[in-house]
Design a protein around this nucleic acid. Structure first.
Lengths: 334, 334
DNA sequence: GTCCTGCTTTTTATCGATATATTGAGCGCG
DNA sequence: CGCGCTCAATATATCGATAAAAAGCAGGAC
């Protein structure tokens, strides 16, 4: 491994001069500078980031800690990356498997200190655990649950989004709408918020928000959605609309409906939440609440940058607005 | 920040004793050990990973460098993570945006040295550029292009997969099959390999592999697939089957077919490549070549572990086998 | 009582960079 | 000629840990 000292020797200068050339800190005379650069080229020197970090206390790296790498988080991460890079920093993703222990570990001082800042997509941690997180590192939480006041947080307007989607289906003629995957789940506050949105939309339209129409899913996957949907269909309860807690779950529902010979949107209207890329293309197009990745990414990165540049005011709690994207799975859509 | 020295002072021992307790290197007497642990607890000490790295030269961290965070790569990364964690290491994802410069940067000595090993999903680099990569760090390449002999590499059996899918559609009655997104593309050797598979299947069945049926896409997204498909339909050339270079592209094609009133699989059979989660659930189910994530992940991690444990034999080039998953988008499927 | 042996613990050197203080060279000006 | 001033370059200390060598300190043999 080539060290700065090797470059210094080759160029006939001191180590500090090499450092000054490479970091453009103190001025260096042109002939000296040229000699140093030549030596750098010749030896193929590259700075040791670890040593720099230890001494300078800066890594120019931000971590985005997510429960899993795919779907929603992958898409969000792709939005976040350019914003971080625009400020000359690097983004890396870490995964916690939606597991409280691993999430706490990701927040442990040891791993935090590696980064200049951390975006954390919480999933498994409750308020009490988050309350224990005391760090001087810039950190912004993302995700649909309550967090302690002292931590910056960006979340979606879940209730409003669910209400929009449900109201839309009611307006287009549905009278008995399922809330698929919207049952209470300790680990996912979002399901509760979205259920409340569904309830409110039903009530506002003078319809009953029957608890029997809040259908739990075993997990938030397409398979979970499909199984729950099939089970509900088998129960024989009448329905003519499905609001699924996420697009992934909605896809499972769509699959179950198709297999059961129910036509979307003629027999049953369907709407999801997140507006994943695929939702636009899956025939007949899944109506979905756009999760506003750009807005969330931008808000989160703005809060993070503010902290990284030394701002120390009170934490902010941003609620990103959402909008409904109407497609063929509901009537009157595109 | 609490340092090891603070713990040592609190426990009334030397710094090395603290280090020995925490790392279980040299034996430490029980009473001493207990005092140290108590001090660690009391002060809330956590090791400084950067300092450890600088001195010990080990980070216990592996990077998976991918072109983008979503879809295929996100799913693959979720397969890789547990395998890395099983050996007590940590996995982080880095992104290159399929850009040759950023890929070279990810391979630069500076960033490599941060990790104990690197998995690199190549997309933008050509053979010449990869040839310049000289590193002593364990590294394994993943992806569908040719790589220099001296680098470990895992790829898919692209030709064989494409042939399987195409032959299956021919067997089920298709006579004019499009190769969507399979045109030559300098940046994606995979498209060529898959086109060859399509050609071979056609020839073996005594059908023409007409170049007019190799349809380029502007980019490898659903939108790209959709636009190309619509354009082809508009051209009026007869067809009764579509082999799409990826499931993402296949989804775009499905969307276009649905909008054009063509029924899948009655009028047109459709098959993709990658077998993404969603392909199973999108009605009528997309027949797809399974990209064998487990196999690829396991092969790659095995090669990486071997290198990280000091093995220095010649590089290996693994071709992971693939299999066809038949679903409703081709006839006679489930 | 001395010396050796086997453990535990401490000392010393080091990883590769950067921040701060200091030295040295060149130059204008009285 | 010497003083002070500016700018370039070097010397020294440090970041927080670990590897390797040295030192302490029992207990037992002679």
């Amino acid at each position: 491994m080539v060290r700065m000292a090797d470059v210094a020797r080759a160029a006939g200068v001191s180590v500090m001069t090499v450092s000054n050339v490479l970091n453009e800190r103190l001025p260096v005379n042109e002939p000296t500078r040229a000699r140093v650069m030549a030596a750098v080229e010749a030896l193929g020197y590259e700075v040791n980031l670890t040593a720099r970090h230890l001494r300078a206390g800066r890594t120019d790296t931000v971590a985005f800690v997510v429960p899993s790498f795919h779907d929603y988080f992958g898409e969000l991460a792709d939005q976040v990356a350019p914003l971080i890079e625009a400020e000359g920093r690097h983004l890396v993703l870490e995964r916690t498997s939606a597991n409280a222990e691993q999430e706490m570990e990701a927040l442990s001082v040891a791993r935090l200190q590696i980064y200049d800042g951390v975006l954390l997509s919480i999933a498994g941690l409750d308020l009490e655990q988050l309350g224990r997180v005391r760090t001087s590192k810039p950190i912004v939480l993302l995700g649909e649950r309550d967090v302690p006041d002292h931590l910056n947080h960006v979340r979606l307007a879940n209730e409003s989004g669910a209400r929009l989607a449900t109201a839309h289906m009611i307006e287009r003629g549905s009278r008995r709408i399922l809330a698929l995957g919207c049952s209470f789940d300790g680990a996912h506050m979002m399901t509760t918020d979205r259920r409340v949105g569904w309830e409110n939309a039903c009530r506002e339209a003078g319809l009953a928000a029957d608890p029997a129409y809040v259908v739990p899913v075993s997990d938030y996957t397409s398979l979970g959605g499909r199984d729950a949907m099939l089970e509900f269909i088998a129960s024989g309860l009448p329905f003519d609309g499905v609001f699924a807690v996420t697009d992934i779950v909605a896809l499972g529902a769509l699959s179950a409906l198709a297999d059961s010979g129910l036509r979307v949107p003629v027999d049953v209207q369907l709407a999801g939440f997140d507006n994943l890329d695929m939702s636009r293309f899956i025939p007949p197009g899944i109506t979905s609440v756009d999760a506003n990745h750009e807005g969330v990414a931008e808000a989160a990165v703005t809060l993070l940058h503010r902290q990284m540049s030394g701002w120390t005011g009170p934490a902010e709690h941003v609620v990103a607005p959402v909008r409904l994207v109407v497609r063929g799975s509901t009537r009157g859509g595109a």
